[in-house]
Amino acid sequence: MTVVSSRVRPGVAARRSGARRPRNLVAHLFLGALIIYFLIPLWWLIVASSKDPVALFSGSGALWFSGGVDYLANLQDLFTYNGGIYLRWLANSVLYALAGGAGATVIAVLAGYGFAKFTFPGRNLMFAVVLGSVMVPLTALVIPTFIMFSDLHLTDTIWAVILPSLLSPFAVYLMRVYIADAVPSELLDAARVDGAGEFRTFVSVALPLLRPVIVTVLLLGVVACWNNYFLPLAMLSDSSLFPIPVGIGLWEGLAANNNGGGHSLWSLIIIGSLVSVIPLIIAFLSLQKYWQGGLSIGSLK
């Protein structure tokens, strides 16, 4: 992965000369348009979250603040509605995302290491099967897994969401490709000669070299679980086990049918959406330097 970081950018001097300014202007305008496009929904969410139901429905200035800007009242409403069910959903989302993401990452590191650094009969066949399974659409597995779990009386439990999330063939693929490059076999042999056992060699020699790919795979895994909708929607019917997307979907269905029981669910949905996007945005912004390099692993020539 050294190639990613050590590249010297060409033509910096030429660009400073000013000869290319017109092209840069066009490029900057293009980027500006993209920024506006990609930020508009989030900006709308931030603005709409500040409004009370009256201002929300007044139709005056969807993209600007109007009426009283009162995030605290909306937040309080969100966190207390229906006995604080939203906080429950938030906690469930955190649990599913961390357990599913971390579990899948641990399994993928181990398997990637096994595939990359050991030779044994059946390895290539097994890895080919793993690669083929990347092409299997995971949602096609949801209904069959639901039927299987319901025969085992495991639906409507946290395990019904966490256990299937542990499956991530693509993470294993990323790990194997990265480990083959980043962990020299000579280093492992040296540790073995020095008397370290296989597990010790893995933990103290290989693992420290894998930090970027571990952060990337963990982040991708957490995002996949946090954003997952189909699996928990199919598996759970007890609303106290819902993660946020399923809960918000429930509210939306009720609100569209005017079933909020006199309460305007729309403003709860909007502020609830805002709260649910903040944790991942913070995670991505603070871990930038890891995942930006890590995302290229799968496709580097």
Binding site: I35, F38, L42, V223, Y229, P245, I248, S276, L280
Partner: peptide
Amino acid sequence: ARFARLTIFLPYAVPAVIGALMWGFL
């Protein structure tokens, strides 16, 4: 450009459900 890169990437961190809802509102 660095700011643009982050902004364009940001929707990936937004759950599909929330993304669809926001556009639905818009």
